[in-house]
């Protein structure tokens, strides 16, 4: 049996990390940072698990934490693949662009931003620096045929 006040301190820190992760999950609009906030919540959970494991003196809490670690690694891989796919569709990481994913007969939660989204930027054509003397004839006149 471990120390009760040590356990309480760990639980307080875990709760604070969990709440901070929840706040970040709700307020951030960047898809990557939303995923990182979920990982912050998982940190708080695994802190709780190891603290209780140490309090009871068993290794069960650490076995659970290994499970949490595995699931968080899977989640990170899947989330990054999903973010890459979403980014290639809209060219942006803003989560508000995806707020109308429901059925078409449901009320829209936000204004449809698809029409408002800016057109893809046109690539400027490469220009060569002018070399040699400028042509003498005026631009409107046809060039003289070569003899």
């Amino acid at each position: 049996m471990g120390d009760l006040s040590h356990l309480q301190g760990q639980l307080v820190v875990g709760a604070i990390l969990f709440a901070l992760g929840a706040i970040g999950f709700l307020t951030r609009r960047n898809l990557i940072l939303i995923m990182l906030s979920a990982e912050l919540m998982l940190h708080g959970v695994s802190l709780n698990l190891t603290a209780f494991g140490q309090y009871h003196g068993t290794a069960a809490g650490q076995a659970f934490t290994v499970m949490v670690l595995t699931v968080s690694a899977c989640e990170a891989g899947l989330a990054l693949a999903l973010i890459l796919t979403l980014y290639r569709r809209r060219r942006s990481l803003d989560v508000n662009l995806w707020s109308n994913l429901g059925e078409p007969d449901l009320p829209k939660l936000a204004q449809d931003i698809l029409e408002v989204s800016p057109a893809p930027r046109e690539q400027p054509l490469p220009k060569l620096t002018p070399a040699g003397p400028l042509p003498r004839y005026p631009k409107s006149a046809p060039p003289a045929a070569k003899p």
């Binding site: 709440a19 901070l20 929840a22 706040i23 709700l26 307020t27 951030r28 609009r29 960047n30 940072l33 942006s92 990481l93 803003d94 989560v95 508000n96």
Partner: peptide
């Protein structure tokens, strides 16, 4: 989208 949080007051209150 990084310079403006979405619903900062409500989200921090609920958190």
């Amino acid at each position: 989208y990084d310079r403006r949080a979405s619903h900062p007051t409500l989200a921090t209150l609920s958190g």
